[in-house]
Amino acid sequence: MVPIEWYLLLATAMFCIGLFGVLTRRDALYFLMSVELMMNAANINFVAFALYYGDLTGQVFALFVIALAAAEVAIGIGIILVLYRNFGVTDVTVPTEMRW
């Protein structure tokens, strides 16, 4: 079998790529996409450990995460819509009202 470290490294790499997107992207939709990527990295982790421990709980959890990610994106897009309405752009660097 493939040593589990590879799966974990893959998940880590995907997570960091997604994180880079979160930190760098300006458009809100790309931001959401990067967040999705990070969640999928976590899913890989769950499924990998489910396989290696022979416990289906990991797969169940991954199923949860996928569905809830979808739900979260739905809400997120709704929020982006409101954001666009108030600020005119979907640029996440524009709304900086909650600051000192």
């Binding site: 739905a74 897009i77 709704g78």
Partner: peptide
Amino acid sequence: ALDGAVYL
């Protein structure tokens, strides 16, 4: 989520 999105 669907209801929430529609409302927002």
